[in-house]
Design a protein around this nucleic acid. Structure first.
Length: 304
DNA sequence: ATCGCGACCTGGTTGC
DNA sequence: TGCAACCAGGTCGCGA
Protein backbone atom coordinates (compact mmCIF):
# COMPACT_ATOMS: atom_id res chain seq x y z
CA UNK A 1 0.00 0.00 0.00
CA UNK A 2 1.46 3.35 -0.97
CA UNK A 3 1.38 6.19 1.48
CA UNK A 4 -1.01 8.95 0.54
CA UNK A 5 -0.03 12.51 -0.22
CA UNK A 6 1.34 14.62 2.61
CA UNK A 7 -1.63 16.08 4.42
CA UNK A 8 -1.89 19.80 4.31
CA UNK A 9 -1.18 21.63 7.52
CA UNK A 10 -4.46 22.30 9.26
CA UNK A 11 -5.30 25.92 9.90
CA UNK A 12 -8.63 27.28 11.03
CA UNK A 13 -10.76 26.22 8.05
CA UNK A 14 -9.43 22.67 8.10
CA UNK A 15 -9.92 22.37 11.84
CA UNK A 16 -13.45 23.68 11.47
CA UNK A 17 -14.15 20.96 8.93
CA UNK A 18 -13.01 18.41 11.46
CA UNK A 19 -15.15 20.02 14.16
CA UNK A 20 -18.21 19.85 11.92
CA UNK A 21 -17.59 16.20 11.27
CA UNK A 22 -17.17 15.44 14.96
CA UNK A 23 -20.31 17.40 15.78
CA UNK A 24 -22.28 15.41 13.28
CA UNK A 25 -20.94 11.94 13.97
CA UNK A 26 -19.42 11.74 17.45
CA UNK A 27 -21.42 14.07 19.71
CA UNK A 28 -23.90 12.10 21.80
CA UNK A 29 -21.84 8.95 21.78
CA UNK A 30 -20.04 7.40 24.73
CA UNK A 31 -16.38 6.47 24.90
CA UNK A 32 -16.20 2.80 25.81
CA UNK A 33 -12.43 2.38 25.78
CA UNK A 34 -9.26 4.31 25.01
CA UNK A 35 -6.06 2.87 23.64
CA UNK A 36 -2.99 5.10 23.58
CA UNK A 37 -0.61 3.61 21.04
CA UNK A 38 2.07 6.27 21.37
CA UNK A 39 2.66 8.16 24.63
CA UNK A 40 3.86 11.28 22.85
CA UNK A 41 0.36 11.84 21.55
CA UNK A 42 -0.79 12.55 25.11
CA UNK A 43 2.38 14.25 26.36
CA UNK A 44 0.39 17.30 27.39
CA UNK A 45 -1.84 15.25 29.62
CA UNK A 46 -0.16 15.56 33.02
CA UNK A 47 -1.30 12.19 34.34
CA UNK A 48 0.16 10.15 31.50
CA UNK A 49 -1.44 7.67 29.10
CA UNK A 50 -3.11 5.40 31.69
CA UNK A 51 -4.75 8.32 33.45
CA UNK A 52 -5.79 9.80 30.12
CA UNK A 53 -7.60 6.59 29.22
CA UNK A 54 -9.14 6.16 32.66
CA UNK A 55 -10.57 9.64 32.72
CA UNK A 56 -12.28 9.23 29.38
CA UNK A 57 -13.71 5.74 29.69
CA UNK A 58 -17.47 5.85 30.14
CA UNK A 59 -17.79 9.54 29.36
CA UNK A 60 -20.39 10.78 26.92
CA UNK A 61 -19.33 13.39 24.36
CA UNK A 62 -21.60 16.41 24.75
CA UNK A 63 -20.43 18.83 22.03
CA UNK A 64 -17.62 19.73 19.62
CA UNK A 65 -16.01 23.14 19.98
CA UNK A 66 -13.12 25.03 18.48
CA UNK A 67 -11.03 28.11 19.07
CA UNK A 68 -8.43 28.88 16.46
CA UNK A 69 -6.71 25.59 15.72
CA UNK A 70 -7.65 23.96 19.02
CA UNK A 71 -10.56 21.54 19.22
CA UNK A 72 -12.26 20.22 22.30
CA UNK A 73 -15.03 17.81 23.06
CA UNK A 74 -16.93 18.77 26.23
CA UNK A 75 -17.85 15.68 28.24
CA UNK A 76 -20.85 14.89 30.39
CA UNK A 77 -18.88 15.47 33.61
CA UNK A 78 -17.68 18.99 32.78
CA UNK A 79 -14.23 17.94 31.63
CA UNK A 80 -13.17 18.07 28.00
CA UNK A 81 -11.04 16.13 25.57
CA UNK A 82 -8.69 18.76 24.18
CA UNK A 83 -7.00 18.25 20.82
CA UNK A 84 -4.53 20.03 18.59
CA UNK A 85 -3.80 18.57 15.17
CA UNK A 86 -0.35 20.11 14.91
CA UNK A 87 1.02 19.80 11.41
CA UNK A 88 -0.26 16.42 10.40
CA UNK A 89 -2.98 15.35 12.82
CA UNK A 90 -6.20 13.78 11.65
CA UNK A 91 -9.38 12.66 13.34
CA UNK A 92 -10.82 9.67 11.59
CA UNK A 93 -14.06 7.89 12.30
CA UNK A 94 -13.56 4.34 11.13
CA UNK A 95 -15.21 0.97 11.49
CA UNK A 96 -13.61 -0.94 14.35
CA UNK A 97 -12.64 -3.62 11.86
CA UNK A 98 -10.69 -1.26 9.59
CA UNK A 99 -6.94 -1.78 9.41
CA UNK A 100 -4.96 0.51 11.71
CA UNK A 101 -3.40 3.50 9.99
CA UNK A 102 0.37 3.67 9.81
CA UNK A 103 0.54 6.61 12.20
CA UNK A 104 -2.37 5.72 14.44
CA UNK A 105 -1.61 7.19 17.87
CA UNK A 106 -4.82 6.99 19.91
CA UNK A 107 -7.91 4.89 19.41
CA UNK A 108 -11.30 5.61 21.01
CA UNK A 109 -13.82 2.82 20.92
CA UNK A 110 -17.31 4.30 20.81
CA UNK A 111 -20.41 2.65 22.15
CA UNK A 112 -22.94 1.77 19.51
CA UNK A 113 -25.55 4.44 19.09
CA UNK A 114 -28.83 3.41 20.66
CA UNK A 115 -30.88 1.86 17.89
CA UNK A 116 -34.28 3.32 17.18
CA UNK A 117 -37.10 1.18 18.66
CA UNK A 118 -38.47 0.11 15.32
CA UNK A 119 -35.07 -0.40 13.79
CA UNK A 120 -33.67 -3.85 14.34
CA UNK A 121 -30.64 -3.19 12.16
CA UNK A 122 -27.45 -3.35 14.21
CA UNK A 123 -25.41 -0.14 13.94
CA UNK A 124 -21.82 -0.39 12.84
CA UNK A 125 -19.33 -0.37 15.69
CA UNK A 126 -16.87 2.43 15.08
CA UNK A 127 -13.77 4.07 16.44
CA UNK A 128 -12.54 7.61 16.60
CA UNK A 129 -8.88 7.54 15.65
CA UNK A 130 -6.22 10.17 16.18
CA UNK A 131 -3.63 9.73 13.45
CA UNK A 132 -0.56 11.96 13.38
CA UNK A 133 2.59 11.36 11.39
CA UNK A 134 4.82 14.14 12.70
CA UNK A 135 3.41 14.21 16.21
CA UNK A 136 3.34 17.96 16.66
CA UNK A 137 -0.29 17.47 17.62
CA UNK A 138 -1.62 15.98 20.81
CA UNK A 139 -4.53 15.19 23.08
CA UNK A 140 -5.24 15.84 26.76
CA UNK A 141 -8.10 15.70 29.21
CA UNK A 142 -8.83 19.19 30.47
CA UNK A 143 -10.30 19.19 33.97
CA UNK A 144 -13.40 21.36 34.02
CA UNK A 145 -12.61 22.45 30.50
CA UNK A 146 -16.00 21.97 28.89
CA UNK A 147 -16.66 25.68 28.42
CA UNK A 148 -13.07 26.69 27.61
CA UNK A 149 -10.11 24.54 28.57
CA UNK A 150 -7.77 26.36 30.93
CA UNK A 151 -4.85 25.11 28.85
CA UNK A 152 -5.89 27.38 26.00
CA UNK A 153 -7.15 30.45 27.84
CA UNK A 154 -4.20 32.35 26.37
CA UNK A 155 -5.41 31.65 22.84
CA UNK A 156 -7.20 34.65 21.38
CA UNK A 157 -10.59 34.39 19.76
CA UNK A 158 -10.39 33.69 16.07
CA UNK A 159 -11.56 36.00 13.28
CA UNK A 160 -14.59 33.81 12.59
CA UNK A 161 -15.77 34.08 16.21
CA UNK A 162 -18.68 36.55 16.43
CA UNK A 163 -17.16 37.89 19.63
CA UNK A 164 -13.81 38.66 18.03
CA UNK A 165 -13.08 42.28 18.89
CA UNK A 166 -11.78 44.11 15.82
CA UNK A 167 -11.03 47.24 17.81
CA UNK A 168 -9.00 45.37 20.40
CA UNK A 169 -7.04 43.62 17.67
CA UNK A 170 -6.31 46.97 16.02
CA UNK A 171 -5.09 48.47 19.27
CA UNK A 172 -2.91 45.53 20.15
CA UNK A 173 -1.38 45.28 16.67
CA UNK A 174 -0.51 48.94 16.70
CA UNK A 175 1.17 48.68 20.07
CA UNK A 176 3.75 46.23 18.75
CA UNK A 177 6.95 46.73 16.83
CA UNK A 178 7.16 43.24 15.35
CA UNK A 179 6.28 42.67 11.70
CA UNK A 180 2.63 42.17 10.88
CA UNK A 181 3.14 38.62 9.64
CA UNK A 182 4.74 37.59 12.90
CA UNK A 183 1.83 39.23 14.74
CA UNK A 184 -0.71 37.41 12.56
CA UNK A 185 0.89 34.15 13.64
CA UNK A 186 0.74 35.10 17.33
CA UNK A 187 -2.19 33.07 18.62
CA UNK A 188 -2.52 35.39 21.62
CA UNK A 189 -3.56 38.21 19.30
CA UNK A 190 -5.60 36.36 16.73
CA UNK A 191 -5.91 32.60 16.48
CA UNK A 192 -6.33 30.19 13.63
CA UNK A 193 -3.95 31.87 11.18
CA UNK A 194 -0.94 29.83 10.07
CA UNK A 195 1.88 30.43 7.65
CA UNK A 196 -0.16 29.72 4.56
CA UNK A 197 -3.20 31.85 5.21
CA UNK A 198 -1.03 34.60 6.65
CA UNK A 199 0.75 34.92 3.30
CA UNK A 200 -2.52 34.72 1.40
CA UNK A 201 -4.21 37.36 3.55
CA UNK A 202 -1.23 39.73 3.37
CA UNK A 203 -1.24 39.44 -0.41
CA UNK A 204 -4.95 40.15 -0.56
CA UNK A 205 -4.55 43.15 1.73
CA UNK A 206 -1.46 44.28 -0.22
CA UNK A 207 0.69 44.45 2.89
CA UNK A 208 4.28 43.31 3.32
CA UNK A 209 4.71 40.97 6.27
CA UNK A 210 7.61 43.00 7.62
CA UNK A 211 5.50 46.11 8.10
CA UNK A 212 5.79 46.87 11.82
CA UNK A 213 2.52 46.70 13.70
CA UNK A 214 2.93 50.17 15.08
CA UNK A 215 3.31 51.63 11.60
CA UNK A 216 0.06 50.23 10.26
CA UNK A 217 -2.75 52.63 9.50
CA UNK A 218 -6.22 51.83 10.73
CA UNK A 219 -7.28 51.24 7.14
CA UNK A 220 -4.46 48.72 6.71
CA UNK A 221 -5.67 46.67 9.65
CA UNK A 222 -9.28 46.87 8.49
CA UNK A 223 -8.21 45.61 5.07
CA UNK A 224 -6.15 42.87 6.67
CA UNK A 225 -9.06 41.57 8.74
CA UNK A 226 -11.30 41.58 5.69
CA UNK A 227 -8.62 39.62 3.86
CA UNK A 228 -8.09 37.09 6.65
CA UNK A 229 -11.80 36.39 6.81
CA UNK A 230 -12.06 36.18 3.03
CA UNK A 231 -9.34 33.56 2.60
CA UNK A 232 -10.74 31.50 5.46
CA UNK A 233 -14.29 31.72 4.21
CA UNK A 234 -13.19 30.65 0.75
CA UNK A 235 -11.28 27.67 2.11
CA UNK A 236 -14.15 26.70 4.37
CA UNK A 237 -16.67 26.95 1.58
CA UNK A 238 -14.67 24.54 -0.54
CA UNK A 239 -13.30 22.26 2.15
CA UNK A 240 -16.31 21.95 4.38
CA UNK A 241 -18.84 20.88 1.84
CA UNK A 242 -19.03 17.16 2.39
CA UNK A 243 -17.45 14.22 4.10
CA UNK A 244 -18.27 10.60 4.32
CA UNK A 245 -20.26 9.58 7.36
CA UNK A 246 -17.48 7.27 8.48
CA UNK A 247 -14.55 9.37 7.48
CA UNK A 248 -13.89 12.63 9.25
CA UNK A 249 -10.70 13.82 7.70
CA UNK A 250 -8.67 16.96 7.90
CA UNK A 251 -7.13 16.49 4.50
CA UNK A 252 -10.17 15.66 2.45
CA UNK A 253 -9.36 15.13 -1.16
CA UNK A 254 -11.07 18.29 -2.36
CA UNK A 255 -7.95 19.91 -3.72
CA UNK A 256 -9.30 23.36 -2.88
CA UNK A 257 -6.06 24.16 -1.20
CA UNK A 258 -3.78 24.29 -4.21
CA UNK A 259 -6.33 25.77 -6.55
CA UNK A 260 -6.95 28.92 -4.59
CA UNK A 261 -3.41 29.87 -3.57
CA UNK A 262 -2.22 33.23 -4.83
CA UNK A 263 1.27 33.37 -3.35
CA UNK A 264 2.03 30.49 -1.00
CA UNK A 265 4.28 28.01 -2.81
CA UNK A 266 4.03 30.06 -6.00
CA UNK A 267 7.64 31.24 -6.22
CA UNK A 268 8.53 32.76 -9.61
CA UNK A 269 4.98 32.45 -10.89
CA UNK A 270 3.31 35.68 -11.99
CA UNK A 271 1.19 37.59 -9.49
CA UNK A 272 -2.41 37.37 -10.64
CA UNK A 273 -2.85 41.11 -10.07
CA UNK A 274 0.25 42.54 -11.70
CA UNK A 275 2.22 39.63 -13.25
CA UNK A 276 5.33 40.37 -11.20
CA UNK A 277 7.02 37.10 -10.21
CA UNK A 278 6.21 35.97 -6.68
CA UNK A 279 9.18 36.01 -4.32
CA UNK A 280 10.08 33.55 -1.61
CA UNK A 281 12.14 34.58 1.42
CA UNK A 282 13.24 32.79 4.56
CA UNK A 283 11.14 33.64 7.57
CA UNK A 284 11.40 32.13 11.05
CA UNK A 285 13.00 28.92 9.77
CA UNK A 286 10.29 28.57 7.14
CA UNK A 287 9.16 30.56 4.11
CA UNK A 288 7.22 33.65 3.20
CA UNK A 289 5.83 34.29 -0.25
CA UNK A 290 4.72 37.68 -1.51
CA UNK A 291 4.45 39.91 -4.55
CA UNK A 292 7.27 42.46 -4.44
CA UNK A 293 5.22 44.96 -6.45
CA UNK A 294 1.84 44.68 -4.73
CA UNK A 295 3.38 44.26 -1.28
CA UNK A 296 6.32 46.69 -1.14
CA UNK A 297 8.81 46.23 1.64
CA UNK A 298 8.63 48.83 4.37
CA UNK A 299 11.36 51.45 4.24
CA UNK A 300 14.22 51.28 6.74
CA UNK A 301 15.02 47.73 5.68
CA UNK A 302 18.74 47.32 5.18
CA UNK A 303 18.50 44.70 2.41
CA UNK A 304 16.90 45.01 -0.99
C1' DA B 1 6.35 42.83 28.66
C1' DT B 2 8.24 42.08 24.03
C1' DC B 3 11.23 40.11 20.60
C1' DG B 4 13.49 36.55 18.08
C1' DC B 5 15.02 32.05 17.70
C1' DG B 6 15.87 26.95 18.53
C1' DA B 7 13.72 22.53 19.59
C1' DC B 8 10.46 19.19 18.73
C1' DC B 9 9.09 15.45 14.84
C1' DT B 10 8.78 12.36 10.32
C1' DG B 11 9.29 11.31 5.63
C1' DG B 12 9.73 12.98 0.96
C1' DT B 13 12.98 15.35 -1.93
C1' DT B 14 17.36 17.20 -3.28
C1' DG B 15 22.31 17.22 -3.81
C1' DC B 16 26.79 15.28 -3.90
C1' DT C 1 23.47 4.10 -6.30
C1' DG C 2 23.85 5.53 -1.41
C1' DC C 3 23.54 8.53 2.04
C1' DA C 4 23.47 12.99 4.19
C1' DA C 5 21.33 17.27 4.27
C1' DC C 6 17.42 19.83 3.69
C1' DC C 7 12.52 21.13 3.98
C1' DA C 8 7.68 21.41 5.64
C1' DG C 9 5.66 24.44 10.18
C1' DG C 10 2.48 25.08 15.05
C1' DT C 11 3.67 25.82 19.51
C1' DC C 12 6.44 26.09 23.55
C1' DG C 13 10.13 27.79 26.12
C1' DC C 14 14.31 30.19 26.52
C1' DG C 15 17.65 34.15 26.66
C1' DA C 16 18.22 38.88 25.67
Amino acid sequence: MRPGPTPKVPELPEVEVVRLGLEQHVVGRTIAAVDVLHPRAVRRHAGGPADFAAQLAGRRIAAARRRGKYLWLPLDNGDALLAHLGMSGQMLLRPATADPERHLRVRFTLDDPTPAPREPRRPLRSELRFVDQRMFGGLAVSAGGAELPGEICHIARDPVDPEFDDGLFLARLRSRTAGVKRLLLDQRLISGVGNIYADEALWLAMLHGDRPGNRLRKADVTRLLVAVRAVMAAALAQGGTSFDALYVNVNGESGYFDRSLEVYGQEALPCSRCATPIVRVAFMNRSSYFCPACQPRPRRRSRD
